[in-house]
Design a protein around this nucleic acid. Structure first.
Lengths: 163, 163
DNA sequence: CTTAGCGAGTTCGGAAACCAAACCCACTGA
DNA sequence: TCAGTGGGTTTGGTTTCCGAACTCGCTAAG
């Protein structure tokens, strides 16, 4: 991994790209914040989970918060930075729902939003996540993109080539 | 990883969650489709890259296409399923751009879309990817979501708990 | 008071993955 | 004939992963 293209994708994956890290973020986002819950729900070896949690806390994606003094017990809560990874989880889930297991979804997400959201809402609708451009509001399609590397020497050459 | 919560996030990561796999998808999406380009741009060991490419081809995310017969030479092109992972790459990049390196971006993406797109466009705007709900069009926020696991025994307990 | 159990890790030894460098093979161009 | 390129494979050492067993502090039951 030395001398690679400088890139925020690689930088982010250096933080959360190891096995189980994103699943930890999934669990704490769902509300499972304690060690044994994480072990059970993720199925990771306990020692691996220990090192992942330490790393994620150091990186500022999780907070280790005491919920008991005697004996000392902690839970791991996502920080704002940690919750900001939710779009990654949603797009991963959307891809799996579409391309894995013949479209069978192991979990669905209910979204409370839209026009009726301002008042006290009662029922939502199924979430279908789509990546759009904040500037123009349109769904992002591969052919509408052009990459511009800002570091010298790192060009792109293909159909999505920079100018 | 046995006996874990059934989940499309975990399923997708089982396919593309190994080290370098998503960077391979990044490169082929940018147009770098050949073995030595991938080695250089990703910085991965050659043997690891060999096994990643084999796996991604088997999984149907890449196609191995001959571009020379004598000597036999191949390039690796993303399939539709491979390109469908671009939302994951975009959200990873957006997170890194926001939270890494004090907001310095190693690369910017130009988006050609929006109202002026139908006619022959000349200039685009910077892409700022946002995850929205296809149903209601709103940006997805953590507090607007509720998870509903469809497998028995796998519940969620926290603030985003299912009913 | 003794024992059972839980939550949250730590320790252990073996299996698997990763890594950089070296090597190989088929060709091309000088 | 010789150097160079593209696309790998081989080699041997390091790191990571894994499951099971163990520890420690505490609580609840008998």
């Amino acid at each position: 991994m030395k001398d690679a293209r400088p890139c925020s994708i690689a930088g982010t994956l250096a933080l959360v790209g190891e096995k189980y890290s994103l699943l930890v973020l999934r669990e704490v986002s769902l509300g499972a914040t304690r060690f044994d819950q994480l072990v059970r729900n993720i199925g990771a070896p306990r020692d691996v989970l220990t090192t992942r949690l330490k790393r994620l806390v150091e990186a500022g994606l999780l907070e280790k918060i005491a919920y008991s003094d005697k004996p000392p017990r902690f839970e791991y809560r996502p920080t704002r930075a940690g919750l900001d990874l939710e779009p990654v989880l949603l797009t991963l889930m959307a891809w799996g729902d579409r391309h894995l297991n013949d479209g069978d979804r192991p979990m669905v997400l209910e979204h409370f939003g839209g026009p009726a959201h301002a008042g006290g809402h009662v029922t939502g609708h199924e979430l279908v996540p789509v990546v759009t451009c904040a500037e123009c509001g349109e769904e992002v399609r591969h052919d509408d993109l052009t990459a511009h590397p800002l570091a010298p020497g790192w060009t792109v050459t293909g159909p999505a080539a920079a100018v």
